[in-house]
Design a protein around this nucleic acid. Structure first.
Lengths: 155, 155
DNA sequence: TACCGATAGTTGTATGTGCAAACAAAAATA
DNA sequence: TATTTTTGTTTGCACATACAACTATCGGTA
């Protein structure tokens, strides 16, 4: 019984499943695993990884708009709005309305925690490099990003 | 101004960003993009991709327990409980208590939609293969899964 | 037999994310 | 100039997921 049939075809090692051959499955599993690390590190100062990334971008590009952030971060505009709200609550950014656009600026406080973010970022990198292997990481990242970009256009 | 300094180092093509070199970022971007496709296809009959996967597993392994599903699907037990609840609402599975364990079985209805799930699964595969390239997909999937597994052990 | 730690599962709560709809402002067209 | 369309942003709602705390059961030990 059980799943002999499918497993016989798909599996080679014991931990593989009928799902491991599916990119939809694997990509989500990877994202969850690595996000756990990211949120653990960035969480030390009360941010999740996407907040940290967004804040970096705002610091680098003062007056950036939500739609620009949306493109850079590969997130929908509504998600950007929510993230900005959170960062605003924490006084890391402020918003300025300019016509139909919204300009986002980092506060002094937001700029001040940049070093901490950079450190956390590095720790995250170290941790997943250690787990996955430094050489593989670089290639994997490139391929993953390329795939994400291709799929972004698909729909 | 802007971000010349960093971009000069990191970017080669215009769409790359300081983030694209980060696996945490890229993996999440990929997961979101591919999940959008998955949910679109599986959503045609009211499921999201994780429901569909779980149902497959339950059909293949009648009487499977939440903790087994948790390992197979790389999801936390609490998430499994929530997914099972959803599938139960839709009358695709039923639960049986056996001591401290819970056994999950597919209903006739649940087994009946298996063909539809298989079709949707195939459509998803076709769509991302078309976007990414058939050859790349296979290798990418393996690497992504391997990385996810390594990271799963890390924490 | 009676207790205690370990294990399995569920629930409360919180959060990131997205879709669809609403809204506001700009641009295009008549 | 007036009207329509398009664009940018925000909100209402829904959902997958996780953590922490809680409950229930099992297994071992005194």
């Amino acid at each position: 019984m059980k799943n002999e049939k499918i497993d016989a075809v798909v599996c080679e090692e014991k931990s593989a499943t009928r799902f491991s051959a599916c990119l939809l499955f694997s990509a989500n599993a990877l994202a969850r695993a690595i996000t756990a690390i990211g949120d653990e590190e960035f969480g030390r100062f009360g941010l999740c990884y996407s907040h940290a990334y967004m804040l970096c971008e705002v610091v680098a590009q003062p007056g950036i708009t939500p739609s620009e952030l949306s493109e850079t971060l590969y997130l929908t505009p509504s998600t950007i709005t929510r993230l900005v709200e959170k960062l605003e609550q924490k006084h890391y950014v402020r918003r300025e309305s300019e016509g139909k656009r919204t300009l986002i600026y980092a506060t002094a406080e937001g700029e001040a925690i940049q070093p901490e973010i950079a450190q956390a970022w590095e720790r995250v990198g170290t941790r997943y490099s250690d787990a996955i292997g430094k050489n593989d990481v670089c290639q994997l990242t490139q391929q993953v990003f390329k795939a994400a970009k291709s799929l972004g256009k698909e729909s």
